[in-house]
Simulated scan of single mutants.
Amino acid sequence: MKVVVVTGATAGVGRAAARAFAKEGAKVALVARGRAGLEGVAKELGGHGFPVEADVADFRQVAEAARTVEKELGPIDVWVNCAFTSVFAPFTEIDPEEYRRITEVTYLGYAHGTRAALDVMRPRGRGVIVMVGSALAHRGIPLQSGYCGAKHAIQGMYESLRCELLHDKSGVQATMVHLPAVNTPQFGWVRSRLPRRPQPVPPIYQPEVAAEAIVHAAKNPRRREYWVGMSTVLTLLADRVAPALLDRYLARTGYSSQQTSEPAKPVEGNLWEPRDETEDEGAHGRFDSRAHGRSPQVWLSRHRRAATGAGLAAAALGYRAARRVAASRKSA
Rank of each mutant, 00 (worst) to 15 (best):
I76W: 02
L45Y: 05
R115Y: 10
E104C: 04
Q206M: 12
I129P: 02
S289K: 12
W272Y: 15
L245G: 10
A63E: 15
V4N: 00
V6K: 00
L300I: 14
D239I: 00
E104F: 06
V228T: 02
P221I: 07
M131C: 10
P123N: 11
L250P: 09
A42S: 13
A20Y: 01
E212L: 00
G46F: 11
P75V: 02
T85R: 06
H216G: 01
G8P: 03
H216T: 00
V177K: 02
L179A: 08
H292I: 05
S231M: 03
V132M: 05
G133M: 04
T106P: 00
V13P: 01
I204A: 06
V80E: 00
C82E: 10
V52L: 09
T114M: 12
E70N: 10
P296H: 12
E159Q: 14
D168M: 12
V52A: 05
E281D: 06
A42H: 05
V190E: 07
P96V: 05
P96C: 10
L108F: 15
G125A: 08
A17K: 00
G140K: 02
A264Q: 07
A17Q: 00
F88C: 04
E268M: 08
M176V: 12
E93W: 06
G229F: 00
G109C: 11
K330L: 13
T278D: 12
T278F: 12
K2H: 13
R139L: 10
H303L: 05
H216L: 03
K265L: 14
V241R: 04
G140W: 05
C148I: 03
